[in-house]
Computed example of a mutant assay.
Amino acid sequence: MDKTSKIYVAGHTGLVGSAIMRKLESEGYTNIITRTFEELDLTDQKATREFFEKARPEYIFLAAAKVGGIQANSVYPADFIYINLMIECNVIKASHEFGVKKLLFLGSSCIYPKMAPQPIKEEYLLSGYLEETNEPYALAKISGLKMCQYFNKQYGTNFISVMPTNLYGPNDNFDLNTSHVLPALIRKFHEAKINNAPYVEIWGTGTPRREFLFVDDLADACLFLMKNYSGNDFFNIGTGEDVTIRELAELIGEVVGYNGELKFDTSKPDGTPRKLLDVSRIHKIGWRHKTELKKGLRTTYEYYIRATRMV
């Protein structure tokens, strides 16, 4: 992949896609193709094939997806499995049909069993039951990963997959009804600070442990793999470190400058008790994360402040 290669970033306006765009542009790639959802609905097979036939991308970062937290997955399970399956099927099939040289598929760590041993190795895929609260999304992402492997096996394509841990950073979704835990907490703490609220309410017990990766580090890992790996393995992408939800909330409170109480609503679900990825596979080929959690939280909060001022 050279600086003038035709690169299609699917989902370029989202959290991951926008980070990949920043990374590619910062490294001098000059021939990047993008389409908004209004311009191209990747769930539409005919429209997707017509785009590939006309644009002829050489390399693809498949970051387009319907994403959300526990609440969104619970309310819209049919949308989560249908939309994500359709995007994957259409883009992967068209990539094969129109001679894409290499594709990187973005999955999720939710593909692993709910009670997988910790830290979670890539080999634990399909070894147990999924977490019920995000099963539709997880099933779709498992299918995308397997499609890449099976197309490689049958057709000799060069499609690789990454399974990132919980992501955060600039361009995140801060909507309290559809966001993941970290951006939701940033918004809750900021609004509590502005309104002088005596406490912030947090879903669950605060005891589950989660790993968080700054999204620009994921983009760095994706480009690293595009340059340096071809094969049928997939890769966990994370930090190899985790914190409890309580510890995360305390850290966000510190970054935001909020000094009130934390109240945990134990009637709400916790989700998976712990989810820490084993990242030794990608460490072995030479990639490690660079951004520590507190620094990443500061950057993300600064972005949130700028974004709310522009609304």
Rank of each mutant, 00 (worst) to 15 (best):
residue 108 S to C: 09
residue 178 T to N: 10
residue 126 L to H: 08
residue 118 Q to G: 11
residue 135 E to Y: 05
residue 147 M to N: 06
residue 119 P to A: 03
residue 107 G to I: 02
residue 118 Q to Y: 01
residue 123 E to V: 12
residue 172 D to N: 11
residue 114 K to P: 00
residue 122 E to H: 05
residue 104 L to Q: 07
residue 103 L to Q: 06
residue 161 S to E: 07
residue 158 N to I: 07
residue 137 Y to K: 08
residue 145 L to M: 10
residue 128 G to T: 05
residue 171 N to K: 15
residue 152 N to P: 04
residue 125 L to F: 12
residue 176 L to Y: 08
residue 173 N to D: 15
residue 114 K to S: 14
residue 133 T to A: 13
residue 106 L to E: 08
residue 150 Y to W: 05
residue 112 Y to M: 12
residue 173 N to G: 04
residue 118 Q to S: 07
residue 135 E to R: 15
residue 138 A to P: 06
residue 127 S to A: 10
residue 133 T to S: 15
residue 120 I to K: 04
residue 140 A to M: 08
residue 144 G to Y: 02
residue 115 M to Q: 13
residue 162 V to H: 00
residue 140 A to L: 11
residue 138 A to N: 04
residue 147 M to V: 04
residue 145 L to D: 02
residue 131 E to K: 08
residue 116 A to D: 10
residue 146 K to N: 11
residue 153 K to N: 06
residue 143 S to C: 14
residue 174 F to C: 02
residue 107 G to E: 01
residue 146 K to V: 15
residue 162 V to S: 07
residue 110 C to P: 00
residue 111 I to L: 07
residue 155 Y to T: 07
residue 147 M to A: 14
residue 105 F to C: 08
residue 122 E to P: 13
residue 179 S to I: 01
residue 166 N to G: 10
residue 123 E to I: 14
residue 124 Y to H: 14
residue 132 E to D: 11
residue 174 F to R: 03
residue 171 N to L: 09
residue 123 E to R: 14
residue 110 C to N: 07
residue 128 G to P: 03
residue 134 N to I: 06
residue 151 F to I: 15
residue 152 N to C: 08
residue 140 A to K: 04
residue 104 L to N: 02
residue 152 N to I: 08
residue 155 Y to R: 15
residue 112 Y to H: 12
residue 108 S to D: 13
residue 148 C to E: 08
residue 128 G to D: 03
residue 106 L to T: 14
residue 134 N to M: 10
residue 157 T to Y: 06
residue 113 P to I: 04
residue 107 G to S: 10
residue 127 S to D: 11
residue 121 K to A: 12
